[in-house]
C-alpha cells in the first residue's frame, strides 16, 4: 500500500507491505540503522522514534500508521544536515558521558527529547520515571539522568543569536 509521510523533515512516499514494522522499514528499506532493536517484547525502548512529536516504539508501530504522520529518527534529530552539529540533547549526552556502548542511546535520546519538550524543567524523579520504557545495561542510568537534566535546560534556553 502507498503511504505518504514526513521523514526527518522531508516528504516521503513509499509502497509498503502492510505487515511491516516501522523499525523494519527504517532499518531494512531506508537504511536508517540508528534505530536499534534490542528486544521482541516492546520493553527495551532502543527503537524509540518521534511519531508526530511523541516518543513511540517503532517495533510496535506498523508502517501503514505512518500515512499522514511526521516521523523523526535519531539521524534526523540535529537540524543541520551535512554538518557535525549536534542537537542540544545529543550534546548533553556527550558532555555528561550519558552513553557507553551506544546501543540504547538513540532510543534514550529520542525519549529524552520528547520528555524535555513536554516538561522543560524536569526533576530527577520525573526523568527517572520518564525513562521507565528504556533499558540501558552500561551506564547505571546516572549519567543519562544528568544528561537529560542538562539537555532539557539547553533545549529550552532562549536561542542565542549567531
Amino acid at each position: 500500500m502507498i503511504i505518504n509521510f514526513t521523514l526527518n523533515g522531508r516528504p516521503r512516499k513509499m509502497d509498503v507491505e502492510p505487515a511491516t514494522l516501522v523499525s523494519e522499514l527504517l532499518r531494512e528499506t531506508l537504511n536508517l540503522t540508528g534505530t536499534h532493536v534490542g528486544c521482541d517484547t516492546s520493553q527495551c525502548g532502543a527503537c524509540t522514534v518521534l511519531f508526530n512529536g511523541d516518543a513511540v516504539k517503532s517495533c510496535t508501530l506498523l508502517a501503514p500508521s505512518l500515512d499522514g504522520a511526521a516521523l523523526t529518527t535519531i539521524e534526523g534529530l540535529s537540524a543541520t544536515s551535512g554538518s557535525n552539529r549536534l542537537h542540544p540533547m545529543q550534546e548533553a549526552f556527550h558532555e555528561n558521558h550519558g552513553l557507553q556502548c551506544g546501543f540504547c542511546t538513540p532510543g534514550m535520546v529520542m525519549t529524552a527529547v520528547a520528555l524535555a519538550t513536554r516538561n522543560p524543567v524536569p526533576t530527577e524523579a520525573e526523568i527517572r520515571h520518564g525513562l521507565e520504557g528504556n533499558l540501558c545495561r552500561c551506564t547505571g542510568y546516572q549519567n543519562i539522568v544528568a544528561s537529560i537534566m542538562a539537555g532539557a535546560v539547553a533545549m529550552n534556553a532562549p536561542a542565542i543569536g549567531e
Binding site: L32, F93, H94
Partner: peptide, 9 residues
C-alpha cells in the same frame, strides 16, 4: 560518542 549519538554506529 559522535557516531553513536547520531545513529551512525
Amino acid at each position: 560518542d559522535f557516531r553513536f549519538l547520531t545513529g551512525r554506529g
